[in-house]
Amino acid sequence: MSDAVATPPATRWRAATITSIERPTPRIASVLLQVPLGGYAAGQHLDVRLTAPDGYQAQRSYSICSPPGAALVELAVERLEDGEVSPYFHEVAQAGDTIEVRGPIGGHFIWHPQDGGPLLLVAGGSGIAPLVAMARERAARAPGMPALLLYSARAWDDMIFRDELIGMASRDAAFRFIAATTRSAPRREGDYGRRIDATILHGILASWQQVPARAYVCGSNRFVEAIAAALVDGGMAPERIRTERYGGA
């Protein structure tokens, strides 16, 4: 409980201009925003607010993918069936549009270079969003610090930031990137073509030969429960494991 970080007053709503929207995978809209946030930490999120003509407002939270100091703020918005806000980003929004945001928010699921390593990052699906900010922050400010990113997705082409992460690992021997695809075959040596279970996770950690100082796990609740339990079973102290869960069970 001694790691509390004072969060600056950042909760006023402010206008953010969409500078571009890309589609790195069929289900993801990568939204780049021009907004003066001041500082933020890798892992923090923004609240987004959209207003209908009748005054109705919808809000959602999205993790920031861009690393601290980036010129533009990047959000990865997954298209949810029956969604209310995500279809707006996928079908309506375009460069030049203005939305409202507030933040950065969150003082727990964050990582600073001075927090040190070794750093274990485990992502399920769009849970990669806050973890890619940490990987980018580490690459920029703490290269050489041992880190391992384990990323589970349905298929190879569903992996947001995939090529960037492969490149990061090829340039920096201290950064390992392992992909697990639950509905397609593994593409690279060391990748997995099935769901990550305790056996896989313990095997990866044993061959890594690092003891993570901290683990960040983000994904669906079922994914996070399984990974966090496997880490605890493997001997990791629960207080070293930080979790963030998206959506329902």
């Binding site: 727990h108 966090a228 605890v232 869960r245 329902g248 069970a249």
Partner: peptide, 17 residues
């Protein structure tokens, strides 16, 4: 204000269960 209705029961917690 700012809330939406859900039928499932999402789970949020800072660490392992």
């Amino acid at each position: 204000p700012g809330q939406y209705q859900t039928e499932d029961f999402p789970v949020l917690s800072a660490g392992p269960t």
